[in-house]
Design a protein around this nucleic acid. Structure first.
Lengths: 341, 341
DNA sequence: ATTAGCACTCGACAATGGAGAGTGCTAAGC
DNA sequence: GCTTAGCACTCTCCATTGTCGAGTGCTAAT
């Protein structure tokens, strides 16, 4: 749909703009790229591109700036091209991986820092939503009078603990039996599934024949709630160093959005559907507050089930190719890490 | 050391400045406070105060601005005065307290939000340094081949879990015996103490007679490391709304500092020594990066042992009295909460 | 000791104007 | 017919200028 030469000019403009902010003029394009064309011709092409909506002028007689549509075209075209792979990145990530094999949350925290460090944008990682993890087994430990510590083991290697109140009369032996009962009954199913089953069960009959089973159900009702995953966000200072954030109101807006982690969770959840790294450019963003930012995100998986997401948030003037490869690799690493468990 | 009238003028200037940034002139002081003096007299007094270092002029023929020394004098004088107590604050905090009784970390997260919401500055809370919590007991649960989940219960109601690798030959029964051994041996002592003892023990004799005790010691060595407490920071957007943060470099500096949580931990640890809410004003700050900010912080306790800290970070132009009372109350609430456990 | 009056200083703000970058258009060249 | 050189035009950026207002410091009078 776009003439090859026109396409090259568009990409040239985008690359110039990514390297240095500010409108890019026809002369710099001819200087930086050797099209063998004069500025005047480039101007004509750029004019065409503007008409088609890929570029825009901040004001008459300024250079051109890519629009979100222009970026979209660029990203989609480049998708299939070879990825920029950062050797240091692989090494560093590998090292972290070794260190933190045992604790996925600590790893994700580090991973968000890595993402921001490498991309110079904001790194975001999300730990698995507990709802979609599958139960390995459960342990109940009497803690104090009428309090029981519940330890949840999932197949993904997550451990969750929680204290709940129960009938004081329950002995540790009772608890062991309850734990064994729950484990054998629900092992291998997701927390969310279990929650649904339990809720139904509890609603169906108030009084169950076996009082231990009744207790077990009560405990299940208290324990199997899907708590949203943690979100780890790093690199705010990184992103403020960018010339894009010279506007103070922009910073405020960004921080206000970032600070509410629920928003980020929603956003990443939305992205989690698709396969491969997703790119959301500026106005494509479903959230109004983020319409001036871009997001590159991907999901990591356990087997074939998506578990959580990692991503980068930055200005629309983002180095998309680099961001995509960083995000993609990070997600792939975490996926691999989970499969070793 | 300061004439009563002079003192009143100083406090008047400080209060004006806290209400609205920008140098405060002699005329506005006479308007807002009825000293029964003319601007000219106030000017003379302010001139004296400047000579003594309590006030300063940004430039000739501008109003006066309090210096850090001025603030220090103000805060110290006001210390004993009655506290501004926010009814809403108490109610709100109480509500949160009820909801989150069971999980101190979740509570601290909420508490930091509350602090920032109420003060309009940055709220910071720090969870107990695990090193100073005392062991209640330990549970070992076989997880997978050669992996064991360690569940640590502390007297303060904290539960920590961790996965460690052990000799695959150990059965759950062995583990139970080891857990019982450790629990009975070390219950009631702080994690840090235990760590020291274990390290010494391990160093003393490589081969212990009882192989189970040896395993126990190995496990202890892996488990009883003091991990620094989590830090919860909220209210960045709150503080950016203040007119003090119109300077973009200031924001960057602040964010860079805040983002490195170790710095905050150090800072709060330093404060944790003293009793009652501590106030650090601008240049008094031991950290260079924070010399343009003020900190109000207090520790919460379990019994008489300080467990962690809560605080507020804001510009030197801070409403110190309000901040002090908010911080003090919050710390008191957490202390109370811990004593109920 | 306090106050009124006055000259002086300095920052904030708006208006001005030139420099530079870049465009669009037209006419000439391949 | 596509490409290019030339030129007039537009717009931003920046430094300069001048005015206004707030506030001080000093002196002399009360």
């Amino acid at each position: 749909m776009l003439d090859e030469r026109t396409k090259q000019v568009l990409f040239a403009v985008i690359q110039c703009y990514i390297n240095a902010p500010g409108p890019v003029g026809s002369r710099v394009v001819t200087k930086k790229f050797s099209f063998g064309l004069s500025p005047a011709t480039i101007r004509n092409i750029m004019s065409d591109l503007e008409e088609m909506g890929y570029l825009q002028q901040p004001h008459t007689s300024a250079g051109r700036v890519p629009t979100d549509i222009g970026y979209r075209y660029y990203v989609d075209s480049m998708r299939s091209e070879k990825r920029l792979i950062n050797k240091d990145f692989l090494l560093e990530l590998n090292r972290k991986l070794e260190l933190l094999k045992k604790d996925i949350n600590a790893f994700l925290d580090e991973a968000s820092k890595m993402l921001s460090y490498l991309s110079h944008y904001i790194g975001v990682t999300m730990s698995p939503n507990t709802g979609i993890t599958t139960l390995d087994r459960i342990e109940l430990i009497k803690y104090r009078d009428s309090q029981v510590a519940v330890i949840l083991f999932t197949d993904e290697g997550l451990i969750k603990n929680r204290i709940i109140s129960v009938d004081a009369a329950l002995s540790q032996r009772d608890l062991n039996r309850i734990a064994a009962y729950i484990s054998s009954h629900f092992s291998g199913r997701t927390i969310e599934e279990i929650r649904k089953v339990v809720v139904k069960e509890l609603a169906r009959e108030k009084v169950l024949c076996d009082s231990l089973v009744e207790e077990a159900m009560k405990i299940c009702g208290a324990v199997f709630s899907a708590s949203p995953g943690n979100v780890y966000i790093s690199g705010l200072s990184e992103v403020l160093a960018l010339p894009d954030f010279c506007d103070i109101d922009r910073i405020k807006e960004l921080l206000k959005t970032i600070e509410d982690k629920h928003i980020i969770i929603k956003l990443l959840d939305k992205i989690a559907d698709e396969d491969g790294p997703q790119v959301i450019i500026g106005s494509e963003n479903p959230l109004d507050e983020m319409k001036t930012f871009s997001i590159v995100a991907a999901t990591y998986k356990e087997g074939s089930r998506p578990m959580g997401a990692v991503g980068i948030i930055g200005p629309t003037r983002m180095n998309y190719l680099q961001a995509i490869s960083i995000v993609d690799l990070t997600a792939a690493y975490i996926t691999e890490m989970l499969s070793y468990k």
